[in-house]
Design a protein around this nucleic acid. Structure first.
Lengths: 237, 237
DNA sequence: CGGGACTTTGAGCAAATTCAACCATTGTGG
DNA sequence: CCACAATGGTTGAATTTGCTCAAAGTCCCG
C-alpha cells in the first residue's frame, strides 16, 4: 500500500476543499484538542485497499477528494460493496476495535487521517463532534436500509436505474454536472454494489440504452434520457 | 389499530422488564425532564401495523416485550423487512420528520411510547441519552450492512443458515433457550427478511432438515444439529 | 500502435420464482 | 364433539431471471 502523507499542519484545514461538507465543519480553529491539530493528509492511488477488514483500527478517515468503495470479501472471493465514499464522507467505526469493512480507492483518493487515539481525545472534548457523527450514522443507516430493499426485492433493471439515480442525485446535491452522470467505478464495482454480475450489469445497461431510457457515453458517463421511466423503476416506496 | 394504553406513571419504570437492556438503563429516576415521566406503556396485538411508513413521526418506541418487524412496502406489494425488534430495541429516527419504515407486531408487543415532542426535550437535557442512541445507531448500522452481504451475495441455503444462527445468538445473549431456537415469525416474514419467497424458505428448510443440519419441531421451533455445517454456511467474512 | 485491462455479447445452465395443488393446524359453529 | 372453513405451510412442475463459461470487441495508456 503506497501512501503519500503530505503532512500535518493546522493551517491546511483552512484551505481544505471538503471542510464545509465534513464532520469538521465549524470545528476548525477551536482550542486544542482540535481535529485540525491531529489530522494528516494522505493521497492513495486508484486501486489501493487502504483499510482491510479484520485489521485493528488504527485510523479513522475523512474523504477530501475522490471516490472509494466500502466492501467486504467472503472466503470464496465473493464481494459485497456496502456503499461508496465521496468528498466529506467519514470512514471508521468509533465503537469498534476492528474494521468490519475494507475500503478501496476507486479513483485517486485524498484522505484526512486521524489516529484512533487522538480522535477519541478530541471526541471526548467536543460534544458537537459526537452529535455530528451520530447524525452521519443515522444517514448511513437510512442509506443502508434503502439498499436492503434494493438488494432484497428489486430486479436487475430496477437496481441499475436506482444506482444511476443515486449518482445523479448525489451530483445534483454536490452542485456538480448531474446529467451525463459521471460513473467513476468499474462494472465489477457496480455489480458488487447491486448484488449482480458484471455481465448482467453490462447487459442491463445495454437494454436500458436500447429502450432509449439512457445513453452510454463512454465507460464512465451515462446520459439520463427518460426520467419518467427511471423514476418509475426506482419507485421504492 | 387497536391499542391499550396501560398508563403513564414513573413508578412503572422501576418494575420494567426491559429496563436493563433499553436506552433508559440508568436514566430512570433522574430529575425531570426524565424518560420515565414522559412514557406510556401500550400493548398491541400480533399483526398490528403500529407505525406506517410515510406517516408523520408522532412517537418513538422502545420494545418492552414481544417481537416486531421493521418493514417497507413497495407500490406493487413487494415487501422488505430490514430487521426485527425485540425487548430493549428502539424504534424511530430522531432526525427525521416522517417514518421511512413501518413497524408490525409479530407477536403481541408491549411498547414504551414517547411523543416526539417530549422525547426531544429529554434528549436535549440528557447527553447520556444521545450517546446511547448513537451507540444503538452504530449497532443497527453494522447489522444492516451485514444484511447487505446476505442479500447481495448469499444463496438461499446460506441465508436460512445465517438467519437461524442470528436468532440463536440473540437468544444466547439474552439468556433464553437457544437450541431449539424459537422462530416467532411466519414464513412470509422470513422470506421478506431474506429476499426470498415463502416457497423457497420452506423448501430450503426442508432440505436442511433432510441433510440433518437442522430438525424442524413444529412451525416455530428449529433444533440446530450440525453446528459445523451451519457455521460454514454463515461464513460471512 | 500495440498490449492489457475492462466491457460487451452470446449460448447454455442453474437457482429461485411462479403458479397450482395439497396438507396441517386451529378455531368456529352446528 | 365433530365437521368444516380459514390460515399458514409444504410440495411439485414449469418458467424466468440472472449466472457461468466462452469469445469477441473496445478503450486506454504507455
Amino acid at each position: 500500500m503506497r501512501e503519500a502523507v503530505v503532512g500535518s499542519s493546522p493551517e491546511r484545514c483552512a484551505y481544505c476543499a471538503a471542510q464545509r461538507v465534513s464532520i469538521c465543519d465549524g470545528l476548525v480553529g477551536r482550542p486544542a484538542p482540535c481535529l485540525s491539530t491531529i489530522s494528516a493528509t494522505t493521497t492513495v492511488p486508484a486501486g489501493t485497499l487502504f483499510v482491510e477488514q479484520g485489521a485493528k483500527i488504527e485510523h479513522f478517515y475523512s474523504i477530501i477528494a475522490g471516490c472509494a468503495a466500502v466492501l467486504r470479501h467472503l472466503a470464496d472471493g465473493r464481494r459485497q460493496i456496502s456503499g461508496f465514499l465521496f468528498q466529506g464522507d467519514f470512514f471508521g467505526a468509533p465503537f469498534d476495535t476492528e474494521h468490519a469493512w475494507s475500503a478501496e480507492a476507486i479513483t485517486d483518493v485524498t484522505l484526512c487521517r486521524f489516529t484512533r487515539h487522538d480522535f477519541k481525545i478530541v471526541l471526548d472534548a467536543t460534544p458537537q463532534l459526537e452529535a455530528r457523527l451520530y447524525q452521519r450514522a443515522s444517514t448511513d443507516l437510512a442509506a443502508a436500509r434503502d439498499q436492503l430493499v434494493l438488494l432484497g426485492r428489486k430486479s436487475a433493471r430496477e437496481k441499475l436505474a436506482s444506482f444511476l439515480m443515486l449518482l445523479h442525485r448525489h451530483a445534483e446535491r454536490g452542485g456538480r454536472v448531474a446529467n451525463p452522470v459521471h460513473v467513476p467505478m468499474s462494472r465489477l464495482d457496480i455489480a458488487d454494489f447491486l448484488g449482480l454480475t458484471i455481465e448482467t450489469v453490462s447487459r442491463t445497461l445495454t437494454q436500458l440504452q436500447r429502450d432509449r431510457v439512457i445513453a452510454l457515453e463512454g465507460r464512465a458517463h451515462v446520459r439520463l434520457l427518460d426520467h419518467a421511466a427511471l423514476d418509475q423503476l426506482v419507485d421504492a416506496v
